[in-house]
Amino acid sequence: MQRFVVLCALFISFFAASVLAQSNSLDQYRLGSGDVVKITVYGQDDLSLETRLSDVGIINYPYLGEIKLVGLTLPELESYIYNGLKGDYLVEPSVSVSITDYRPFFINGEVKKPGGYPYQPGLTIDKAAALAGGYTERASKTKIFIVRDTEGSSTTISVDRSGIVLPGDIVTIEQSFF
């Protein structure tokens, strides 16, 4: 019985850690062109909006004017809007910002249907390849690369099949030698 309890505790802590890691990665997620953002101010319909970010990533928000959203995290945007509305316009605004549609990711190389696909939270290389029709018979299981934009510059990283894919990533599955 004690062994069962220990195994259950280990399982629960592992599951909680993975959920927390996913949550933390979304808190650190930076908005980019193509994302659809929903801004809600409780009780203030005229201050709530939903918009797809353009390449410029600037929106015109009531009372605050132009706000550049590209590169901001959701908590940063919430804080900016909260602080901008607090005082002059509202006493204690209740601001919520969410992403209703992420920008797509792209996958090319040794998959059956290369192209752009809608991002889904929790996406791994294997899941991305499945969306693209699966690996070809020549696909390498070890030569997998992601080109990721991080704070204005592109970085190429080598990953394994369990690597995490983020919105806007370009995944390349190389051909194996044998």
Rank of each mutant, 00 (worst) to 15 (best):
R30S: 05
G32A: 10
G34K: 04
D35S: 04
D35I: 05
D35C: 05
V36R: 04
V37K: 08
K38D: 08
K38F: 05
K38G: 06
I39L: 01
I39P: 00
T40F: 11
Y42N: 07
G43H: 13
L47H: 02
S48T: 15
S48R: 14
L49G: 04
L49T: 15
L49Q: 14
L53Y: 10
L53K: 03
L53C: 05
S54W: 14
D55K: 12
V56M: 10
I59F: 12
N60I: 09
Y61V: 07
Y61K: 04
Y63V: 12
Y63A: 06
L64E: 04
G65Y: 11
E66I: 03
E66Q: 15
I67W: 10
K68N: 02
K68M: 04
L69G: 00
V70R: 03
V70G: 01
G71T: 07
L72E: 00
T73C: 03
L74D: 00
E76M: 11
E78S: 06
S79M: 13
S79K: 14
Y80N: 13
Y80I: 13
Y82D: 03
G84C: 07
G84A: 11
L85F: 12
L85E: 09
G87H: 10
G87Q: 08
G87E: 08
D88R: 15
D88M: 14
L90A: 04
V91G: 02
P93R: 09
S94A: 12
V95M: 02
V97Y: 00
V97R: 00
S98P: 06
I99D: 00
D101F: 07
P104G: 09
P104L: 08
N108G: 10
N108R: 10
G109E: 08
G109C: 10
E110F: 09
E110G: 03
V111Y: 08
V111E: 02
K113L: 10
P114N: 12
G116H: 08
Y117A: 02
Y117P: 01
Q120D: 02
Q120L: 06
P121I: 06
K127I: 10
A128H: 02
L131R: 02
A132V: 05
A132R: 04
G133N: 09
T136D: 06
E137W: 09
E137P: 02
R138F: 15
S140K: 08
S140Q: 09
K141N: 15
T142C: 11
K143L: 14
I146Q: 00
V147Y: 09
D149E: 14
D149Q: 14
T150V: 15
T150E: 13
E151Q: 12
E151C: 01
S154G: 13
T155A: 05
T155M: 11
T156E: 15
T156L: 11
T156G: 07
T156P: 06
S158E: 14
